[in-house]
Write a protein that binds this DNA or RNA. Structure first.
Lengths: 342, 342
DNA sequence: TAGATTTGAGAAAACGTTTTCACAGAAAGT
DNA sequence: ACTTTCTGTGAAAACGTTTTCTCAAATCTA
């Protein structure tokens, strides 16, 4: 392997000068700089990252710790982070906690030991291990939470406005004539689960529709949970007219149950989901859903991380909120027949 | 950060001894070893990977370069590799070529510069850049190809028997009374695309059914391609009785077309797919499909890589082939009415 | 018991960078 | 013309390991 010394010899300068050219920031004569750059070019020199890391304690790797690699929602996010990282000439080390706090802990250890330059995480819980994060902070390694908020004064967050997404979705249902609307949200230990429930309630209150706690159900964000809770909701009296489901996987579960029971959408029950619902086009109708800007979520988080890296001086905590959009499909068509409009 | 020196001082030995204990392999007195281990424990010492890497040129990171992170097929594979890596106390740096040879090249550069200990790749083409791979080999960094074969004498491969998978799928259709069977395979530049076509042909030949090149179509492994090619196949005369599709995404595309044209499965056309087809349960019937052992594919590749790492002495190239299984659903029910069985 | 071998442990070199310090020469201020 | 400030450069220390070399002590061989 050619090293910095070879380059120095080839250019007739000292290794200090080569280093300065490489790192750009110091003052070095233009003519000398050109000679060094030429030498780097002809020798195809690539700095040894290990040596650099040993000296500076700053790697060119960032960690991305997501909570469920199986969920297609995160694919877009990964790509957003990946593209931004590539652009800044960083590599990505991808970890998957599978929603397990234990595994999350384990991976944070790995990232710490690997001395990543920074990390982007989708926290499994709001209350991440305090000391764990402190270690990173002490070493000056920035962390950005994404999609879910975390209880820590020092950690930036990039979020989507869940309250708004849910509120608009439910308002849309109301506008189309539905009044008795059931909700399946996620675990209320997550901010996403809580906020979507909050948005649902706001929309109902704004329309003057009384809340009914019996049709506000909490799932686990997984397919099976959607299946089960849908069964429960279908048995309610008076029957529900519409259903708002708090993420993509649970929506799929709901669809399975509806299909199994021969409940027609939207004739019998209208439906609005959350997130892009993969392959839902396969069903006979298109599903109305709250779309989140997943790619932007990833790239914004990465961008914020690189801002921190480029300017490590104390900056105040930032919380970036992106707006979701409602994609209207056939599953929430205006209510016909029974409506109070006639 | 506590370093090896701190540990040495705390245990009352030299740093060489600590290093020997840490790396296990050298001879060191049992009593001293215990003292060192205790010191490591109480000081919560973690070796600095950068220094270690600088010295040994061997990182504790392996690269995983896959061809399409959007395809759910690879999720299982990633988990297989991830679990095995974690077990061996390696971390994973995940790269995604998006089926682009250029991006693949770029990421190989990154992995090389990052000095990964080894790499597992899903090659975008059979003919990977010769010199690229040579660099890795010269540095003694093993590479394992997975899912797709690569033209290189030195690279291990972990594969699934595509010929067999396709042959059994088509034989199953034939056994159920279908004779005119169309096929949509992948690009014939990939081994998977070619081999599945080969299996299809073998099954027909074994049954004495003449091949018809007009109903052997080549797609791109993407949803849209399945949609288009299904349209073409539906227009054939004489009409096809069954359809065999060479991967999951194209099968979804086919389903979309069938639905749009109101073609019933299996009454009008029987269908067999390839890979786990996500959310296909949503359709009214279950799809018969060739299941690949994705998790095992990943863990076997990782296992082979770690074998190489633990025993770097020249070993002959290994090619591991796993067997697919056919999961029979309703989409290929025995043909009724028209059959020659009556 | 004298020599040969084995065992156990320390000193020190090396890996390839970045960065501090020192210093020569040029430019600028008096 | 003499100090002062800038610019540009090199020498050398440090980062934290692994590993080679040495060497003393312990064990074995004759």
């Amino acid at each position: 392997m050619t090293n910095i010394q070879d380059v120095a010899r080839h250019a007739g300068v000292s290794i200090s000068t080569v280093s300065r050219v490489l790192n750009g920031n110091a003052r070095v004569n233009g003519e000398v700089r050109k000679r060094v750059e030429a030498a780097v070019e002809t020798l195809a020199y690539h700095p040894n990252q290990a040596a650099r890391l040993l000296r500076t304690n700053r790697s060119r790797i960032i960690g991305l710790l997501i909570s469920d690699i199986q969920n297609p929602f995160f694919m877009g996010l990964i790509r957003g982070v990946e593209d931004e990282a590539l652009r800044h000439e960083y590599s990505l080390i991808l970890c998957n906690s599978s929603e397990s706090p234990h595994r999350e802990q384990q991976y944070l250890d790995v990232l710490y030991a690997e001395r990543v330059a920074g990390a982007i995480i989708v926290p499994t819980r709001e209350q991440l291990a305090e000391e764990q994060l402190k270690r990173f902070r002490e070493r000056g390694v920035p962390i950005v939470a994404v999609d879910r908020r975390v209880k820590d004064q020092h950690i930036d967050a990039v979020l989507v406005d869940n309250v708004r997404g849910a509120r608009e979705a439910v308002a849309h249902l109301i506008a189309n004539g539905y009044r008795r609307i059931g909700m399946i949200t996620g675990p209320t230990t997550t901010t996403t689960g809580r906020e979507r429930l909050e948005g649902y309630r706001q929309a109902l209150e704004e329309a003057g529709i009384p809340l009914d706690p019996k049709i506000e159900l909490r799932g686990t964000f997984e397919v099976q949970s959607g299946e089960e809770l849908a069964r429960q909701l279908l048995n309610m009296t008076p029957p529900i007219e519409a259903l708002f489901v708090g993420n993509n996987l649970m929506t799929l579960g709901v669809l399975k149950t509806l299909q199994a029971r021969n409940v027609r959408v939207p004739e019998d029950v209208a439906l609005v989901g959350y997130d892009e619902i993969p392959w839902a086009e396969l069903g006979s109708i298109s599903i109305t859903t709250v779309l989140q800007p997943v790619y932007e979520l990833g790239s914004a988080a990465a961008l914020r991380l690189f801002q921190r890296l480029q300017n490590p001086a104390v900056q105040s905590r930032q919380e970036i909120t992106l707006a979701p959009t409602l994609r209207v499909g056939e599953s929430s068509r205006p209510r016909t027949g029974v409506g109070s409009l006639t």
